[in-house]
Each structure stands twice: as C-alpha cells, then as structure tokens.
C-alpha cells in the first residue's frame, strides 16, 4: 500500500491524542486550572491535528460532512461519529476542569470510553479489509488500542502504567509483525485463484495492461521500504518501545521524559509507515507483484 503521509500523521498523532484523552478522562492526572489547560491543549492538538491531516488525502474534503451518514455499514463513518462525540464530551469535561476547577467524573468516564472507541473504529477500517490479509486480523485493533493506551500513559505522565503498557504494546507489535508475514500465503488468495487459470499449470503475469503506471499500481503495489523492512522494524521497535522504557526507568527529569515522548512518536510513525508500506493488497497478484 502507498504510505500516504497524511494518513500516517493522522493515525499516529490522533492515536496518541485520544490515548491521552482517555487518561485525562479517568482523572490520571487529576489536573485542574492551567495544568489542565496545557494537558487538554496537547491532547486536542494531537487528536484534532491528526483528524485534519486525514482530510488532506480526500479528493473532495468539502463534502466530508456526508461521511457521517452511513454509520450502519461503514467503519469510516462510525469513526467520524466516535471522534466528534469524544471531542465534544471531553471538551465539556475539560472546560469544567480548566475554568470551574470542577471534575465531572461521569462525563470523564464517558469521554474516556469514547476516546477508545475512536481508536477502535480507526483500527477496524483497516482490520475489516479482506483484500489486505496482513491487516485482516483481530490483532490489528489490539495493536492500535495497546499503542494508543501506551502512548497516552506516556504523555499523561503515568509512569507506572507506561512501564506496563509500553512493553505490552511492544509485544503485540512483534506478534502482529510475525503473524502479518504469513498472512498473505495463508489467505488462500494467489495468482491462481485471482485468474482462475491455476488448473492449467503455473500462472505467470506476462504483460500488464499498459506500459505505464496507474492508480492501482501507485496506491496498492508500493515497494520502497519493503527492501529495508527488517531494519525499519528494528528502528521502530527501539525508538517506539525500548528506548522510552529505558528512559522512564532512569531517575525522572522532564528533559528525559520529553526525549522519551519524541522517541516514542518517531518509532510509532516508523511502525505506521511500515504498516502501510508492507501491506500486500491482493490486486498486486494481477500485476504479478506478489511472488510468495
């Protein structure tokens, strides 16, 4: 899959932002006044900034409101509803904490649940796609949720939780990679079922439809990155999970915590880039690009 920068920025940042909102909703930390303002501002910049970035890849962003209409069948539409409700509820909760020094806990719990719902619906947009066997697994929502919770704990300064959730998310990440590497060959879809010609012998793509490239090849048959997948996985794992844990175990300082956050974001962005760059869409089979 083509790793569109707007979608990588969106899923990385908004995942973190909603993770932070989850912890703020639970009152961890139970901030009020200026402190609360800073925490909520960071969470909203990440969550809303990510959502805005996601509209950059649309062909017609001016029609984005129509995307709220099909929540009965579409995970993308459900994501829109979850995001707007989470942001509204948490805005009310945040306003109470910042301006009234009050904590409406019920509102906070609701906002926390909705924030997780956003991350879950985002993950289901990918996990529902049978055409991309690497994504089409229950592990994908688990990966997105564990990442969001770990990043949220890190940003919320919940060091104890972060020290549990980061290694857990790292473990899920490694399992997801291992399972993903076998997914296409286990899916049962190959060039023989794609063309229906397998009974006659070994099928080979002889000529593509056109000499030039096209939308399908650009969008679904991306290859740069796969070449370096192993190295990038090591980079993603080290920066996203291992280094933040080590930094949190050192005596606390704001500078170290800041480095841990930056390292985590860089690592997760790398992992998210791989999420797309390594994903094999079965349409590549028609172009002879998925030699197992």
């Amino acid at each position: 899959m083509h790793p569109a920068p707007s979608v990588i920025v969106f899923t990385t940042l908004s995942g973190l932002g909603f993770g932070l909102l989850f912890f703020l909703g639970l009152g961890m930390p139970a901030v009020t006044g200026l402190n609360a303002f800073i925490f909520f501002a960071i969470a909203y910049i990440l969550a809303v900034g990510g959502l805005m970035a996601s509209t950059f890849h649309l062909g017609h962003p001016e029609r984005a409101l129509k995307a709220f209409s099909q929540w009965r069948s579409s995970w993308l539409s459900r994501e829109g509803w979850a995001a707007v409700s989470a942001l509204l509820v948490m805005a009310a909760f945040g306003a109470g904490a910042v301006f009234l020094d009050a904590r409406f806990s019920l509102l906070g719990f609701l906002g926390a649940a909705l924030s997780l719902a956003v991350v879950f619906t985002t993950s289901m947009i990918y996990a529902q796609l049978k055409t991309i066997p690497r994504w089409n697994t229950h592990m994908t929502p688990v990966l997105f949720l564990s990442l969001s919770l770990a990043g949220g704990a890190l940003l919320a300064g919940q060091i104890t939780y972060a020290l549990i959730l980061l290694p857990l998310a790292g473990l899920v990440q490694v399992l997801w990679w291992m399972q993903g590497d076998k997914a296409l060959s286990q899916s049962g879809t190959d060039i023989a079922t794609a063309t229906g010609l397998g009974e006659g012998g070994t099928v080979r793509a002889f000529e593509p439809p056109h000499t030039g490239t096209n939308y399908l090849l650009r969008e679904f048959v991306h290859v740069v990155g796969r070449k370096h997948a192993a190295k990038l996985r090591v980079i993603a794992f080290t920066l996203g999970y291992a280094l933040p844990v080590i930094l949190l175990l050192l005596p606390f300082s704001h500078a170290l915590a800041g480095v841990a956050v930056l390292s985590h974001i860089t690592g997760i962005a790398t992992s998210r880039w791989l999420f797309f760059a390594e994903a094999e869409h079965v349409v590549g089979l028609y172009y002879g690009k998925r030699v197992a």
Partner: peptide, 11 residues
C-alpha cells in the same frame, strides 16, 4: 469524497 476506501476494499 474521494477517500479511496472502496478501492482498498475491492480485490
């Protein structure tokens, strides 16, 4: 809206 998700879903 040109989100492209339908093309992703089509094998």
């Amino acid at each position: 809206i040109g989100c492209g998700l339908c093309a992703w879903a089509c094998p």
